[in-house]
Computed example of a mutant assay.
Amino acid sequence: MHGPALSGWLLMVLCGVAGAHCLLRTRGATGEERRAARAEAAMGFGMAAMAVPAAVLTPSAWTWAVYAVLFGGAALRALWFIRGGGHHLQHHLHHLVGSLAMVYMAVAMAPGGGGHAGHGAAASAGGIPLLTGLLLAYNALYVLTSAGRLIPVAATAGAPGDGPGRGAQPEVALACRLTMGIAMFAMLLTL
């Protein structure tokens, strides 16, 4: 990722923590909630890996191809679940847009892919400005609507028999999604 090293570290930690929490959510979830938590964990860890400051670790050329393939697979997975429709359609559409945005960033950040040859100081901005702008607008809207849904959510107790920290915690899951939306916005800004 381009930009100041401190912001890269902060994004890396934020996305890593969100990914770890999503991974922990898979333990208490079933069915669709478990699939969503797995997808969000993969997105969080992938975003954390991409946010490592270039001054600390300069990724090799093949790293960007691996990111593109992994997030391309996540986009195909989201498409697979979209085909069935259902009440989680909006969530799968968001995963599709997020995964495709990660593929786009991986391609734009690859040496020769968008002008970021080796993360050099003289590297020009990568990506297609119109597409970057559309993705920024989407993520800004997503963050604002997610924040709006988070405010009125009252804390609820988990299902009977759930231990501490287990059970349904929709406000924490929404906060993780909000965090990753903000991080995606910040990563797109550095593109």
Rank of each mutant, 00 (worst) to 15 (best):
P4G: 15
L11A: 02
L14Y: 05
G19M: 08
H21K: 01
H21M: 05
L24S: 03
R27C: 00
G28R: 13
A29T: 07
A29F: 11
G31I: 02
A36K: 03
A37L: 03
A37T: 04
R38S: 02
R38F: 05
R38G: 00
E40A: 10
M43H: 14
F45L: 11
M47K: 06
M47F: 13
M50E: 00
A51Q: 09
A51P: 05
A54Q: 14
P59K: 13
A65V: 10
A68C: 06
V69I: 15
G73K: 02
G73P: 00
W80Q: 07
F81H: 15
R83W: 14
G84T: 12
H87A: 10
Q90C: 00
H91T: 01
H95K: 00
S99A: 14
S99Y: 07
A101S: 14
A101D: 01
V107E: 03
G115P: 10
H119W: 15
S124M: 09
I128N: 14
L131P: 07
L131Q: 11
T132G: 04
G133F: 09
L134Q: 11
L135I: 12
L135Q: 12
L136K: 14
L141A: 15
L141N: 14
V143N: 03
G148H: 15
I151T: 08
P152C: 02
P152E: 01
V153S: 04
A155L: 10
G158V: 04
D162P: 04
G163E: 11
P164I: 12
G167I: 09
P170K: 08
E171T: 04
V172W: 12
L174C: 03
R177H: 11
L178I: 03
L178A: 05
T179L: 13
M180V: 01
I182N: 01
I182K: 02
M184H: 09
F185N: 01
A186G: 08
A186Y: 07
L189N: 14
L191R: 15
L191Q: 13
